[in-house]
Nucleic acid binder design. Structure first.
Lengths: 219, 219
DNA sequence: GTCTATAAAGTGATAGAC
DNA sequence: GTCTATCACTTTATAGAC
């Protein structure tokens, strides 16, 4: 207490390396990304990766940890209140639908952020070939949100929240939003869009809201 | 005509290299995949990549071309008859729904095939960072099927087939199926599954069918 | 058409000066 | 905490024998 370390030179180096690592690991993959290109992009000496992170794998883990925190930071302000209200047993069927819509809106918003381009590349890679880094992401963020959405859907559809059906419906809801990130090149071409701006994102959210309402309520 | 070249030694080498390339480019990415590891996996000398494909980029293009053909071969037997019936103006609203369901079933089936694991890794990579190879896949396969599904959905929902809304609905339908490939690690963990077998795939198709029917008809 | 051998460039890690 | 220099290894491409 008292002394604020502000930001030492070493801290700045660490941060710059992590930022560059997210970008370059995402673009090239773990093995193809060279420590020299990451150090260059960070404006930092290559030998400092060894000093600060022990080596290339340590830097990768630090980069993925940062992504996990960033995704959490974007979703939690929306989902934590819902989670608490649900735990208190205050969520009826009507509110359940509304909260599923709120959650999918937040997921679409998060994964269409410009920053999410770099995150998503790394996360998609891990999905196809999970390493230790993925475990942390799933345990801290993905699993938690899937559990909540499944619970809401189970309440609305009067299903067992442990049932395969409730879980599968969750996945299909989230899949409707994630396709705009995971199949991005296809989406842009088919829609004739150059990028996902605020107008485009609003259109996406509106269509998904209508789909999900119909899926859950038949209306 | 007359002479059947059967399969020369060179042809076998080409085929073995392409098979190995799909696997290893998919696993490691273009840059990280070494021509030596591909040649080893193919049981072939490393120098033959230069001889048959001109070099590493040529082999990558050949591998992606093969994937394009494979996806086409799985989808076209289902979708071509629908395409023709639609062109003859014989598809009413009820049939339109049935054909959207048939198409999404085929898409799920194709992208849960064991072989599709290797294809999908490459296709997902191209989605985040499209190269020339992606253009061919989109023009030959993806665009064609998106156009057909959008036309069917437009008919059912009485929308302009050129409208953004009809196209967005197509994407959300397909997204429900693709999430089981693109977010595979997350899906398996959340569902408590070890892999997608025939039973699991049937459950997925059943849930998506119900979702899509509700989305398109309100029933 | 396939092989061996090798040139030229790049890789991650690290020792040691400051 | 940062730097330069370098080691040991791997990479792609290719020349040339068979």
């Amino acid at each position: 207490m008292g002394i604020r370390p502000s930001s030492t030179r070493g801290d700045q180096t660490r941060e710059a390396l992590i930022d560059a690592a997210i970008e370059i690991f995402g673009r090239d993959g773990f093995r193809a990304a060279s420590t020299r290109s990451i150090a260059d992009a960070a404006g930092v000496n290559q030998a400092l990766i060894g000093y600060h992170f022990g080596g290339k794998p340590g830097l990768y883990l630090a980069a993925f940890e940062r992504i996990t925190g960033a995704v959490e930071q974007h979703l939690l302000p929306v989902t934590q209140p819902i989670e608490e209200e649900f735990r208190r047993g205050e969520v009826d069927r009507e509110r359940g639908v509304a909260y599923v819509l709120t959650m999918i809106d937040a997921i679409v918003a998060t994964f269409t952020l410009p920053e999410s381009e770099a995150w998503a590349r790394l996360i998609l890679r891990e999905q196809q070939n999970p390493s230790d880094a993925f475990d942390r992401l799933y345990d801290r963020v993905l699993g938690r949100h899937l559990t909540l959405m499944t619970a809401l859907i189970a309440r609305v559809r009067r299903l067992d929240p442990q049932s395969i059906e409730a879980r599968l419906i969750s996945q299909t809801v989230i899949g409707q939003g994630l396709v705009f990130r995971s199949a991005r090149a296809t989406v842009l071409r088919h829609l004739g869009w150059r990028e996902l701006g605020t107008g485009e994102i609003a259109s996406i959210q509106s269509v998904i809201r209508r789909n999900v309402t119909a899926m859950l309520t038949g209306r």
